[in-house]
Amino acid sequence: MNMIRLGAVTKREVQRFLRIPVQTMISPWISATLYILVFGVIIGERIDFLESIDYIDFVFPGILMMQLIFGAYGQSAFSLFFHRWTKTITEMLASPLSYTEIVLGYIIGATTRAIVVSAGVYAIAVLFTDATFANVPLFFFYILVVAILFALIGLLIGLWAEKMEQLNMLQTFIITPLIYVGGVFNSIDMLPEKIHWLVKLNPIFYMVDGIRYSMIGYSESNLLYGAIGLGAACLILFVIVIHLFKIGWKLRS
C-alpha cells in the first residue's frame, strides 16, 4: 500500500464533494432540519411515547443514520459512475495504482463526506435536543461501519449502473423504504406483533437501533448480532468490490 497514491485518490474524492457543497452537504442538512422539526418537534410534542424518552431523542439517531447512509452511498456511487461515464477512470487504470488503493480511496472519500454531513446534522440537533451519547466508542463504531458499508454498496452500484437513473433507483426503491420501515420513526412495539419478524429481517433496523443505543441507551434488538452482521457484510462486500475491480468488470473493455 502506497500512502501517496492512496492519498491522491482520497484527496480527489474529498475535493469533489467540497466542490459541490449545496448538493453534498447543505441539502442533507436542510433535509435533516426539516425531519427534526416536523417529526421531532412539531409532531413529537403531541406523541406520548416512552415514559423516560422524548420522541425527538428517539427519532434523532435514525435521522442521523439516514443522512449518513445517503452521504456515503451518494458519494461513492455517483463518483464512480461519473468517472466511468466520462472515462476519467482510465486515468487511474493507466496508472500504477493498485486496485486496493483505488477502492480504499473511494471508501475513505465517501466515509469522510458521510461524517462531515453527520457532524452537521448533529450540530443542528443540538439546537432542539440533548443529543446525548450513552456510549461514545459504540457511536463511532456504528458511524464508521455503516458509512463503509454504504460506500461499498455505492461502489457496486456505481460499477453496475449504465444510466444515471439506476443510481437513484436503488436509493428510491430499496434504501429509502428500508430506512422508513427500519424503526427510524417508531418503536417495534408500535407495530403488530405478527410483523416483528419482518422488521428484524431489515438490516437498517440493526443500524438504527445500534446508533440509538449508543446515543440514548435504548435498544430493541440484539446489538451483538447486529454488529457482527454489519462487520461481516462490510468484509464480504469489500472482497467482492476488490475482485470486480481486479477483473475490470465494466471498467476495462
Binding site: A8, V9, R12, F82, T86, T90, E91, S95
Partner: peptide, 18 residues
C-alpha cells in the same frame, strides 16, 4: 477523459499522486 469540472492544477496533482 478528464474531470471537466476540476481545476487543471488539481487534476494534474491527482495524477502525480497516482
Amino acid at each position: 477523459n478528464v474531470d471537466i469540472f476540476a481545476k487543471i492544477e488539481h487534476s494534474l496533482d491527482y495524477v502525480g499522486g497516482y
